[in-house]
Amino acid sequence: MNQMSMDVGTALGSSEAVADAAPKMTARNVAVSYGATQALRGVSIDVSTENVTAFIGPSGCGKSTFLRCLNRMNDTVASARVTGEIQLDGKDIYAPDMDVVQLRARVGMVFQKPNPFPKSIYENVAYGPRIHGLARSKADLDGVVEQSLRRAGLWDEVKDRLADSGTALSGGQQQRLCIARAIAVNPEVILMDEPASALDPIATAKIEELIDELRGKYAIVIVTHNMQQAARVSQKTAFFHLGSLVEYGDTREIFTNPREPRTKDYITGRYG
């Protein structure tokens, strides 16, 4: 083991992977193509509530594409075709009777660049509960907003200015607002697409702390470029390369004792 992987090794989080009760989402033999270009092939993976799952790999390896299959955001790209099977609690999410609106309420998403709506902080968080009719009264809604902001670790910073625009917050606060917005509809899965890549180190540390706190409540999948981050926040890691899943296992195993030479080369910084 060389110096590089020692560094990553020391970044490993303290929490070990625990045994999965039952997988929340399962993917079997998933392939995605955009027009004539094959972006992803033969991916099979299980995602659980107990463990945070990280997707790592060089740019263009298909990790974000796969993440967007899990809540069918690829539907918004006209040329995208998804094959294979993805299940949420044992139900095929690409089945004709699956309602994509309900699916996305159950599988939330946080994007790479913070994208709060140009509305007040309160309205940003209340957006989901409102469109899904989750709150019966104003007091109810207030409660949901406060609880979501507390869970996202933002409440103390914004409780006195809930009426201010969400876009006036700092980048890190905006991203936590987006996480609060996703939490507010009480999803079962939260997908995070490089949630800290546009943030400074302190804001990044806060997001990572938050992910650790949310573990166990939601099945969390995080795509990241940053291998130290994957090592710190996840218990399971999947390594993607050139559109296929190379290796998937416990984060500690992947970072200290990878089975595949390609995984080892990537983790030790030979390429990527």
């Binding site: 809540n71 955001m73 918004t76 609106v101 309900q102 699916l103 996305r104 309420a105 939330g108 998403m109 994007f111 660049k113 994208n115 709060p116 709506f117 140009p118 957006y127 989901g128 469109i131 899904h132 987006c178 917005r181 996703a182 509809v185």
Partner: peptide, 19 residues
């Protein structure tokens, strides 16, 4: 990203447009 954010919350296209 605004539109994607709203769609990913489970909003329908018309809700996304209106709200």
């Amino acid at each position: 990203s605004m539109r994607d954010g709203s769609l990913a919350m489970g909003a329908t296209p018309s809700e996304t447009i209106r709200k």
